[in-house]
Write a protein that binds this DNA or RNA. Sequence first.
RNA 1: CGGAGCGUGGCGCAGCUUGGUAGCGCAUUUGCUUUGGGAGCAAAGGGUCGCUGGUUCAAAUCCAGUCGCUCCGACCA
Length: 581
Amino acid sequence: MISMRFSQCYIPTLKETPAEAEVISHKLLLRAGMVRKLTSGMYTYLPLGLRVLEKISKVIREEMAVAGYQEVLMPMVQPADLWKESGRWEHYGKELLRFRDRNDREYCLGPTHEEVITDLVRGELKSYRQLPVRLFQIQTKFRDEIRPRFGLMRGREFVMKDGYSFDANAVGAEKSYWECHAAYKRIFRRLGLRFRPVEADSGSIGGNFSHEFMVLADAGEDTIAFCHDCDYAANVERAEVRYQASETKGEYTCPSMERVATPGAHTVEEVSAMLGVPAAAVVKTMLFVVDGKPVAVLVRGDREVNDVKLKNVCNAQEVHLADGDTVMALTHAPVGFAGPIGLAIPVYADNELREGVDYVTGANAQDSHCMHVDLNRDAAVTAWADLRMITAQDACPRCGGHLELTRGIEVGHVFMLGCKYSDAMHATFLDENGREQTMIMGCYGIGVSRVAAAAIEQNHDEQGIVFPPAIAPADCVLLNLDPRNDVVNAMVEDLYGSLRHMGVEVLLDDREERPGVKFKDADLLGIPMQLVVGGKSLARGVVECKDRRSGQKGELPVDNLPASFSAWAERVRAGWEAQQA
RNA sequence: CGGAGCGUGGCGCAGCUUGGUAGCGCAUUUGCUUUGGGAGCAAAGGGUCGCUGGUUCAAAUCCAGUCGCUCCGACCA
């Protein structure tokens, strides 16, 4: 076990928070001397930060092995040819950092490794007898993110565990998928995180179905919906909204459509206030560009469009909101006056509007709207679909129960890829009948460096980090309050030695600093157990102990310290488990 | 890429409006005193004010350009 004397370690702690840090995990990682920024979205891991990554990696490696995965290591630089073969050279966009070597050959920095791993196995695996194959690596990835932010949470360069399964048939592929899903649950559980697996959209990686593993924390960039009455949980991007036809359908006849002046009213709030109708009676018409073609999307005025659902409904690669010029060209009006009537583009309307009676819509003319619109009578709706964001007021799509929305940090994602890459790249084998078949793939990621940040987002207090034991850079920090006192020194050295003999990872704070400095740093670093040796308590025959998580302090008699330490350590661990449950 | 803002010793900032010898706190070094929750006093070291060009007798300060970083909106582990 390596020696960890604070005076010999590179642990540059900071009293003040660097201005660049926005979220708590970033601030604390910097202050605790665990990371330093090199440039936008790229960080150096200092010794303690690296130890945290290694702790996380260790748990991942153990559980991946249990799930039948073997570790490999693939290059970070990848040839363009493979990406052209899969089709992603065109589709992946600017996040893929591309460059040329001295011979003018094209390459990219690997943001993920589906192409490389598929290329690897297609050359070797030719028979159903060789399948399934399960491989993973822990590697630095590079994605030229649009906007890196939040420190380790969204860097451009980051450490990721990515695993891949290759199966001969759908049954086997699903087995691989669910075994990895189960491994992920064990991993995040062991890491001491409060998390939830949720149904998710497959995004640009593609595939048939997927789950994200979300660490529950307010700083999360995602919102998840979960049910209190069953085990349904989904990313709101994906969570379907149940459509129930209303009983009053058809009983109401909408008056004739009427065009009204609404000067300057271009938000739903302004329109509903001006016309004296509730927001729910206004139709919000949003113009999107879907794979380069404009479409209109209609949702109730008090709802939000879910662009992931739109993308899936249109079977599209890329969706974005139309800009002002496009809106002007399509509706002959500035943003805020679009409506479905007379639009010469496809119109997708949310299910909720199906009854279609007596709505207010934009009139496609500046400063005017239409009242008494019956969407079925007055507008040409191309398709009805589930297009809006779910809300906490909606019923659970599975059981009809009570939903809750909460924020989460995506730390893992498992995808049932199917044959997307194996088809494109001809990863085939011969089945029992000697017929050529395409391998069925799954891919499984964990953001290792993001886990470190997420753990801190979820576990910190005013004093600093509160690392879950499995992630902490050490098990215990041992404070020598009085390095000039020979009696104290002797006790500290004795304790340091015996703890290390017991297999406890100890950081010994032997610095020539005042006690306050050591207390503050110990709290900041977030090491789960603190032992304090000072002249006063030692004179009474005890050393002090503090549980970083609960703040609970106690005293351990110097006689037979190993035994009392072990008992106390067990209590600290039990406290963590109780909190996680 | 669009919008906003910031670049001044290692860190956090002031100075800029109204050009005139670059300042504060923390950190660092030395000495003395202190020593159980980020010590006190004294002294010291460290900055071509992001970079380039311009205006001017004179630029951290005004102008132009450029680079970098951060934040707000479109990507994902």
